[in-house]
Every structure is written in structure tokens, then in C-alpha cells.
Amino acid sequence: MSRLSAAERALQLTTVCCGLLVAAMLVLMLVLAWPLLHSGQLLSLIGGDWQPAAGRYGIAPMLAASLLLAISAVLLAIPLSLGTAFAAVALAPPFLRSPLMLCVRLMAGIPTVIYGFAAVFALVPLMRQWIGSGSGFTLLTATLVLAVLIAPTMIVFFVGGLRAVPQGYSLAADALGCRPVDKLLYLLLPQAAPAITAGIVMGLGRALGDTMIGLMLAGNSAIMPDSMLSTGRTLTSHIALVIAADFSSMEFKSIFACGIVLYLLTAALVAILRRTLPLPATARP
């Protein structure tokens, strides 16, 4: 490699600094959560319950609520997204397909806080009536909105995978007299399996990382959720809610533990994504 000029060195320096900052974030959170981690209570921190008055700062209820909310939202979003992707790729009338995808991309751009705001005033009262007791702020309420929120991301991945099937296969299927729906089921869908997995992992990441929907709709009580109709506080909401506490308290330090858990979960999902998708992850849609 030839020697770099000053300007090229500057480019390199900027890139390396930005990259290092990503790693530095984890270190910074570890340092600030150290008093909690250091006292040898790592297990009781991850597995214990949240009783600040009794000196117990476990984040297990939040972890459970986060996972429950994210997984049920993804399970609900999979059929919605798969059906819409089928329509956009093969089943809708051809003139409708690209407007359909434009709408999906627009949906992906709707601010999260707007979904939350609309749901607080329109969905929560409906849920309150339907459940018959309580405030209507439940994990189920948040799940319904979160599924709609993450669906566009998943659709974009699914459509990308279904469209990436080589043209030759597709023409061969046509020549054999396949109906569009047969081609979809027996050619495109099996071929697109890695992209479908990637889309689901992406959706899970978005659902786990979302703050506003859980915060505005799930009720936020820091107890272990026992059903979808109970209230819950996600890891992300916990960070947003404890922020007001005294900076030197142990409660405050626990939010850095939440941050570390979320960071590691994200890194794990990125690792899975890189294994499922053959192309470099930077070339994702």
C-alpha cells in the first residue's frame, strides 16, 4: 500500500475514532455500573427482583418484560409481514406492487412517538373496555402497536430476499406453467429462507430496542409480568424512568446494567445476522 497523504490520514483517523467510540460505550457503561458489578452480585443483579427499598436492584422483571414483549410482537408481526411481502412480490396485481412497497417504506418512517401517542388515546381505552378491568396499559396493548411498528422493517427484508432469486429459476418455473402462487411457495420461499431469518432477527432487534412504545403503553410497574394482560416495564423503559434518581444512588447505577444487557443482546443479534446473510451486513437494504 502506498503512503497516505495528510488528508487520507484524517479520513483514517476519523473512521478509527468513530469505531473506537462504539467499543468505548460499553467500557463507559461498565465503569459506571462497576459498584453494582463489583460487589459480587452479578447473578442477583440479573436474576433478582427490583426492591430498591430493601436494597435489591435486580433487573429480572425488566428483562422478562422486554423479552416477552419483543418475542410476542415478532410472533404477531411475522404473519402480517410475510403476507404483505407475498402480496408485494407476487400476488398483488402488478400495477399495485410498487405503490405497495412505497407505502411500506413510508410506514417505516412514521415516528415511534406518534404510534405511541395515537395508541394512548385510541387503543388504550378500547383495551380497557375489552379487558374489563385495569387501566388498559398492558403488555398486550404495547405488543399490538409494536408489531405494527416493526412490520415494515421485516417486510423490506422479506421482499429483498424473495426478489433476489435468480431470474433463470423464475423463468423456468413460468415455462413449467406455475401459477404465481405456486412459484412463490415452491421456488421463492425456500430460496429466500436466509433473508426471512434475517428479517425476523432484525425485527426482534428493533422490538427489543424500542423505548417509547413500552414506556407509553405497557404500564411500567417493575414487577415480574405473569400474563400478557399484566403491566410491565421493559429494560429500555427502566433506563428512561430511573433517570430522575440521584446520580450516585445504586438505583441509578442499575440503569447502566440495563444498558450493558441491551448492548450485549444487540451484539449477539448482529452476530446471528452476519451468519445468516451471505452478503456483508453493510450491504443490507
Binding site: 469505531g19 460505550m25 444498558g259 441491551l262 444487540t266 451486513a281 453493510t282
Partner: peptide
């Protein structure tokens, strides 16, 4: 570097 930026892209905004 691209691994680090992928992680950054996936990080929850609250983090």
C-alpha cells in the same frame, strides 16, 4: 470496523 458500525446501527437509541 464494519462490525462495529453494524453494532452501532443496531443499538437501541436509549443506549
Amino acid at each position: 470496523l464494519s462490525l462495529l458500525f453494524d453494532i452501532l446501527a443496531g443499538l437501541p437509541s436509549i443506549v
